[in-house]
Every structure is written in C-alpha cells, then in structure tokens.
Design a protein around this nucleic acid. Structure first.
Lengths: 342, 342
DNA sequence: AATCGATGCGTAAACGCTTACACAGCCATA
DNA sequence: TATGGCTGTGTAAGCGTTTACGCATCGATT
C-alpha cells in the first residue's frame, strides 16, 4: 500500500499523512491522531527507500572491521556490535556490517558506502593505518560522519574517536597484588610494542613492589606461547610470587604449564590476566582478570556518531572507556607474607 | 553526483548510463565500456535508495534472532551470522540485524520490515513458536521469502528451512569410543527433552557398548551443574570408563570435578562433549567434542533464501546440516582393554 | 529505390515519499 | 466591512533511479 492509496482510503491527502507520521508541519492534533490510528488499523508502513530518497539520508550506520579474523578478536567484535546495535535500534537506525579483508579495501568500501548513500555515518574499528587525509576527504562530503574506535583522535571535523584506556584496570591489578603482599611480580607479554608493561611497572613501584627485568617474558598469541613463557619465567629463581599475563588466552596456557611444574594457583603463585574473554570464568580456578568493556566501547562510539549526525551540540569528539579488575580465584596473598602488611 | 549530472558530464543520457551499469537493454559494448571506465575515474556510484525504489527491492536480508541472550547462544549466533554475511556480501546484499526480546515482538518487527520494504527476505532463527499461518500471511505478499533455521519445515510456499541433524556426530562418538574399547559409557545431559540420549544409546548398543540407566544424569546449563553431575555419576561404582557430556560448558565443570576426585583424563576416564565452543580447544586437556558447524548452517540458510528471492529453480526447500567429531585429547582407550580389540 | 528488422540511444513517465507553496476558512483588529 | 494574521489542508515539484517507448541510423532484403 502506498501513502497515496492509504490517504485516499481515509479521506485525506498524502501530505497530511506524511505530516501526521513525522509530527512536523501544520496539522491539527485530531487529524494526526486519526491518521495514526488508522495506520495501525490498516497496517500502512511507509516505503523506506522512498523516505530515504526524499530525506537524502538512510537512517543506517555502517560498522567496518577486519573480517576473517581469529576467534578471539571475534569475541571482541561481538561485544562491540552488541553495544552498537542496542543504541542504534532504540533510535530506529539500522546497522550495516562491512567486514574488510585487508586494510586497503577499507578505503574503497567506505567510499562506496558514502557515495551510494547506503549509510549516514560509519564506525571504523581499530586500524592503525587509516590515513587522516583520506578521512578528511571522505568526511568533507555531505556531512558524513565517522567514529574511530581504538585509535588516537585525528584532528578532523566530523570525525570522532573513542579510545580504550587500560590504565585504570592495570592500576587496580597493582593495587590488589601489592595489598595482598606480593613484592616480586612477573610479566608475560603478548606482542610488542606493549604500553602495558610500563604502566604496570609504575603502579607496582609506587606501591613498593617490583617487576624485575628477569621476570619479564614476551610470548605470542596462543596458549602454547603462554605455556612456554611461563616455563621460561618460572625456571628462573627466585620466582616471583605473582605473574601478570597480558591476555587471557596466554594465561590459559601459562596456568597449564604452572600446574605441570607442580605449582599450585593461587597458593604458590598468583595469576592475573587481561581481557575477560567469556571462558575466563570457566578456567580452573576461575581467572582473575581485567575486564575490557567492549560493549561500552560500542555504545560510546555510536552515541557519539548519532550526536554528530543529528547535529546536537555540544558534541564531545573524544571519549575514553576504562577497564576494571574482576576478582575471581587466581590471585591470593603469597604464603610467606602476611596479607595487607603495608 | 547524480546519474543525470554524470551522464551529461560524459556526453550521454542517464538511460545509457543505467544500461551500462546493469548490462541490460540495448547498448553497444563500446559505449558500455566507456561509461564504466568513466564511472571509475569520476567516482560515480548510483544512489542506493533511488535504485531500490525503482527496483522495488532492497538487496538486503534480515536476520531475526532472540537478542539479550546468554554468552553461549551468542557464540552460536556469531558463527551463524558470519556464515550468512560471507555469502551475502559476495552477492552484493546487505544484512540487517534484528534482535527481538520476546517472541511476540517477532511478528510485528518482521511485518514492519516487509511492509516498509526494508528487506527482501528474512532468516529467522530457532523459535519453536512461530505460527505457521502467520508466516503464510507474511510471505504471501509480494514474494517475500523466509528461511527458518533449526525448525521443522513448515508447508508454506516461499518458506524454506534448514535444520541441524546431530546424529552423524553422535554416531562418530559411539564409533570412536567403542573402537577404543569402552563398553560402559556414561551420559551427562543438559535439559530435557533431549533427543541425543536415545541416538547415542542406539549407536553404542549396535557396537557392543552399553549406557546403563545408572550412568545417566541430567544436569543444567552451567559448569557447576556439570561438576555436580559428574560427582553424582562417578560416585556410583562400577564407574563407566567414558562419559559423554551434552555440552562443552557442562564438560568444563565435569572435568574439574573429575580431577578433584583424583581421576585422570583421559587415562582413568574419557570425556567427550558436544558443541565445540571456542574455548574447547583451551581446556586442559583440550576437549574432544562434536563440532556443530553453525557457519555452514548460516551459509545454507542464506543460499536457500537467495535462490528463492532470485527465483532460480529448482529450489530445495529443506536442507540439513550435519555434525562431526573433533578428536582432541580427552578420549583414549581405557586402561584395562587392548585398543581396537573388536 | 523502397521496405524492413535490428540496433543504439534519448525522452519522459513511473517508483513512493517529503515539503514549499498556495489557498480557503476563521477570528481579531482597524 | 475590508484587512491581516493564523491554521489546517491540498497541489505539485522535487529526490535519483529504471525502463517502456519512440526515433534515428544502417545494412540487408525485395
């Protein structure tokens, strides 16, 4: 059913129906009520494409991410997408997914999106090599907006940015461990460069602890890497009484290696990890880890984008999401120390 | 840039440009090449909404699922969505997500989708209480198509169905376990009714094994439930030498309980689970489990939908996806038997 | 040379909505 | 009673495509 047919059917013009739908323009409250009610009764819904064409917008935003990724970065995407989807659907927007294989596709796909008016704005996640001048060009056109997730903020109008600040969670780790009485703390990293180690070092030192260079090992990405790292780290005596592992996935392997060395978690050695992936609550014992709230990240990003799209002011162009420690069962005071000694 | 502007710019009419784009209608090969090349150069992309309006379709399909679900049914959704997305984007279609909170929203949301022409078809996942007559009404209109995932096939034109058949994987479990020499096999179920137990019983029996009633326990959904079930099951002597656990999540808890009882996996007891969730490869030892290929399920669903939408014949209206066993490290021959004895 | 079908292209009418503008009715003012 | 503003509604011109139709042009047939 078209708006014209429907309008004739209820004895008004299409313009009146349109005004009733949008609540804009001059229309009497009674007429509006009547129209809305009869819409409900007769089941008329305006054609989305015609609306979008007339409005010159699409009420949709795109999510651009690197597709074909590994399981765990999928996990992170899921949560992000869920946060985005929630906000979006409550605003009547649609979400278009755009997995890109390699970074260079990004440009052409995003360009096509904007030129075809498929989306009003986009959220692009975490590619370190988005050229700023390219964004500038893209965005300059027709009020298109972009929000970048997990990226330093570019100085471009209509580009927003939400970043993740890991320092809060890291500080909480240091605080907990030191309060428990740990002094010598080990570190298993993932990939370099890694801004987390200096953070943790600083926090630990101000609380009287120390991360000795001998107790720092860099692993890779898999549980196997974590196991190797743990073996290397704990082979060097004296051992730390606690070890921070950069990711939960590494930690799973590390814990396994630790058990195989005949050590008990957390009594012999405490383990604290990072990310809080879903299976972290299922390890044995359940993993104490830093939660990264990707859902919140998505929510922030899309809220920012919508604000920019709808020209509500003032728009904050930069927002930061923090992390926080989730205490489960892999961290405890070391055996030879009184807890809370300092 | 509009098609009109672009056409003038390159010295033809908008009709010619349109014909070049679609490769339909009477147009000389040279002109077509020229137009396409200049499109590339000048960066012209047709307005999607205008196209959709003129074509009376949207080149988009919707995915309707129960939102706000738990972590693990999310896992399943992810994989499903990935499978769908892959096929879709290779056909130039977009995917619209539609999480619904409760089953009753399903109807109104889907109706709105169709009436607003937001999508050409939909994939609705796994709600047992979709009324068939409602589907019939929905689908009757304008060649709208629906594919249901994980649902018995309804006898409605333009409704397809893809289901999951667990029997293959279950048969493989029985075969492996019996070939290893296990005779007494235990079963930890999740929620009743459970069609898997009879399947497994049958397969095991034909191979000379047995699932005694005393070795069947029903647990719930969480690892804790799995632990309790394992304790109950293994408390009853004589013990089975292998146990099948209905879900990986339960299995995690069960394995923990088994370890706490001083038993070793797989030497003292073999554990085989079902689902192959991502963390199954990270348990200790890595879990032997039945893989459910949700990505394949999604792929099948969307391929069916696209075939229906594009009226390609013959269209299979029902398709089944099978499961298969993934052997990792929690199943081995029992100690007192020679492997492959039969 | 006249006719004809085929071919390549342009013109203009949809597609279903929004909205600027015009207009009629109405009340208040001069 | 004329004037003017205000209000509610209808008319029609967009929005940017697609496509039916018509009109040249051209080579092949009579």
């Amino acid at each position: 059913m078209t708006i014209e047919e429907f309008a004739r059917l209820i004895g008004v013009s299409s313009a009146t129906v349109s005004r009733a739908i949008h609540g804009r323009g001059r229309i009497s409250p009674q007429t509006r009520q009547m129209v809305l009610q009869r819409m409900e009764e007769l089941g008329f819904t305006p054609n989305l494409h015609a609306q979008n064409l007339a409005h010159r917008r699409s009420r949709a935003v795109g999510l651009e991410y690197l597709g074909h990724t590994e399981v765990l970065s999928d996990m992170f995407l899921i949560a992000l997408a869920r946060g985005i989807q929630r906000v979006l659907s409550s605003h009547g927007y649609n979400l278009l997914l755009n997995p890109v294989g390699i970074a260079s596709e990004r440009e052409s796909l995003l360009r096509r999106w904007t030129r075809s008016h498929a989306v009003d704005g986009a959220i692009v996640v975490g590619n370190p090599d988005v050229p700023v001048d390219w964004l500038q060009k893209l965005v300059g056109h027709r009020g298109f907006c972009v929000v970048i997730v997990h990226h330093p903020p570019p100085p471009v109008v209509n580009v927003g940015c939400v970043t993740l600040d890991l320092s809060r969670g890291i500080a909480q780790v240091a605080q907990m461990l030191c309060a428990m009485g740990h002094r010598a703390i080990g570190y298993i990293g993932s990939i370099q460069p890694d801004p987390v180690l200096p953070m943790l070092c600083g926090e630990v030192q101000t609380r009287g602890g120390v991360i000795s260079e001998r107790h720092v090992v860099y692993a890779g990405l898999t549980p196997g890497d974590g196991a190797n790292a743990a073996r290397a780290l704990l082979g060097r005596l004296p051992r730390p009484t606690a070890v921070f592992v950069r990711t939960d996935v590494l930690a799973v392997g590390a814990m396994q290696a630790i058990r195989e060395m005949g050590l008990c978690i957390p009594t012999d050695i405490s383990v604290v990890a990072h990310d809080d992936v879903p299976f972290a609550q299922f390890t044995d014992p359940p993993l104490t880890t830093v939660r990264v709230d990707y859902e919140e990240l998505g929510k922030s990003a899309v809220e920012m984008l919508l604000a920019m799209l709808e020209r509500r002011e003032p728009v904050e162009r930069l927002r930061t999401v923090h992390t926080s420690l989730i205490q489960r069962a892999t961290a405890a005071p070391p055996l030879h120390h009184t807890p809370y000694q300092n």
